[in-house]
Design a protein around this nucleic acid. Structure first.
Lengths: 198, 198
DNA sequence: GTCTATATCAGGATAGAC
DNA sequence: GTCTATCCTGATATAGAC
């Protein structure tokens, strides 16, 4: 009785995970349907029993991931933690996502700009907007509460945070010298206090 | 008398600029030789009078750009400015590159990882290594001189700087609300002093 | 659910005329 | 230096047997 809610992944999820790994590693366009089939131990034609197209695969991969991630951001915003705590939690959650869903983050990072040009992936633009809202809210709350500098361009600051957090996916490797929590902590230290001597 | 040293670009340079724009916008793999030819007002076959292959084009684009950029880094390191000044200059020069060579930076950012897997583009790995040396040297000099915090992981700090600087190419638009110098200044302010209240 | 076989098409590249 | 014409390969996707 295959069931998506079970611990063991369904065949569909297995195939998606394999595809995600390839998309992340070689890029969407550079990964052929045959690559995915090979890695799955079946032939390319068989993949079409499970999915409409290569696009459907990347679509499902990104949708699932973003639903989870934005659920976490919402929970943080809805919590009664202070503005600084919320900002820190958002950073931690993001690095956690890089650790737990590396492929998905990488795909989003590397392919979103291109996929965005197709109507089918319009929801990615909405997610971008939503992410911007989250970070801007966190920053503005911090400034209002007097814990963050009020002389910085909020829009620029948001971009720097967003970029630095997500781009870490390009070099972070789970099981490496530093855990994602350590990285998040160091990152927050730089972001909050700067690298200059006090 | 067409001459590369003249103010007016040679046909070759014109074509490379057009190709660079497309590579940056749509990605290397997603840009067809016919796309480049169309944008240049000629037919695809004619391009092969000027270049061996699509790969040769991106190769020449990246080589030329990197030669210039690393020349600037070398000049900064060789100067007798203080460690903090040198670090600031390196950041400024990088944002300048984003302004003046947006396409080239974007191509390097988006395609290097993939191109790197081909022997032909092995020099990109060397350039990465060289870039790492530059930033690590700047950071270590700063720490040694006592102007930078010594409690940070230098390797992580380097990555954060590198990533945040270059990823700006994905959103920076020349002629926008902020000049590249303003952006560099704000960025340095965050990097050096942090966003937390003093 | 997977395989065999194949239709269909797009893209990189070439040869030779103009 | 550009065009015409075309080759060749590799990629997505389909249809139907097992």
């Amino acid at each position: 009785m295959p069931d998506a809610t079970e611990g063991s992944a369904t065949r569909r999820e297995e195939l998606l995970a394999i595809a995600a790994g390839l998309f992340a590693e070689k890029g969407f366009k550079n990964t052929t349907v045959r690559d995915i089939a090979d890695a799955s131990g079946i032939l390319s034609g068989s993949l079409y029993h499970h999915f409409d197209s290569k696009e459907s695969m990347v679509d499902e991969i990104l949708r699932t991931f973003q639903e989870e991630l934005f659920g976490q951001y919402d929970a943080i915003l809805a919590s009664d933690a202070g503005p600084l705590d919320q900002l820190e939690q958002a950073v931690v959650v993001s690095f956690e996502a890089i650790d737990k869903h590396r492929d998905e983050v990488a795909i989003f990072q590397n392919e979103a700009a291109h996929l965005l040009t197709f109507e089918r992936f319009g929801y990615l633009a909405e997610r971008n907007e939503q992410s911007r809202d989250v970070w801007l809210t966190l920053l503005r709350n911090g400034i209002e509460a007097g814990v963050l500098r009020d002389d910085l361009d909020v829009e620029l600051t948001y971009r720097f945070i967003r970029d630095t957090v997500w781009v870490a996916v390009s070099w972070y490797r789970p099981g490496g010298r530093r855990t994602h929590t350590e990285i998040a902590r160091q990152y927050l230290s730089i972001l909050l206090e700067g690298i200059h001597c006090a």
